[in-house]
Each structure stands twice: as C-alpha cells, then as structure tokens.
C-alpha cells in the first residue's frame, strides 16, 4: 500500500510517500503506525507515541482503531492549520 506523509511528518520521515507491504498481522491503522516505526529511526521519530498527528485511509479520516481492510493508501499528517 502507499503511505503519504505531510508537513513535519514528511520532513522527519524524509519522503512524501512510499510503497510498503505490511505483514498480515498489521490489521489496523494503529498496527500500521507501530510497524512503520520499525522501518527506520526517522520513521520512529516522526511517528513517535504521543505525537499529535492524524490519519486517513483512502482519503477518509481514520483513527488508530480503523481496520485497514482493503485500503490502498494511508496518510499521516499534523492537525490542519489553513485559513
């Protein structure tokens, strides 16, 4: 699946997007975050526990409990600050 990062998450991870193949035991957004942290120290820092970031699955707002299902894209981002 494709993972997209925005704003400071993108800066910390070092890429705007990446294609990953999580193992079958990764079933929820929360599982995915825990698994992504193991990819590199930069991922671990960007997605650190307690960090203020939100998630979306296939562009729809998701929580850590949301099942990944057949989602093709997950996005992680800080709270929005437009306007």
């Amino acid at each position: 699946m494709k993972i997209r990062y925005f704003a400071w998450l993108k800066r910390r991870v070092g890429v705007a997007e990446e294609d990953v193949t999580p193992p079958p035991e990764v079933r929820s957004v929360g599982d995915l975050v825990v698994w992504l942290r193991t990819r590199s120290p930069a991922h671990a820092e960007a997605l650190a526990e307690g960090g203020a970031f939100g998630a979306a699955l296939d562009r729809r707002t998701a929580t850590f409990d949301t099942p990944l299902g057949e989602a093709r894209e997950a996005a992680f981002f800080p709270p929005f600050t437009g306007g």
Binding site: F6, P78, P79, F80, T81, G82
Partner: peptide, 19 residues
C-alpha cells in the same frame, strides 16, 4: 477540516504552525 499546513519563516528559523 481542510488539509492545509503552515510553515512560518521567522528570524529564528522555520517553524510549523500548531493548531
């Protein structure tokens, strides 16, 4: 509710605006 993020340039450097 719209996905925008602001990065400010200040004399001390760059800083992401917090919500």
């Amino acid at each position: 509710k719209a996905p925008f993020w602001k990065l400010e340039e200040t004399p001390e450097g760059e800083r992401w605006v917090e919500s």
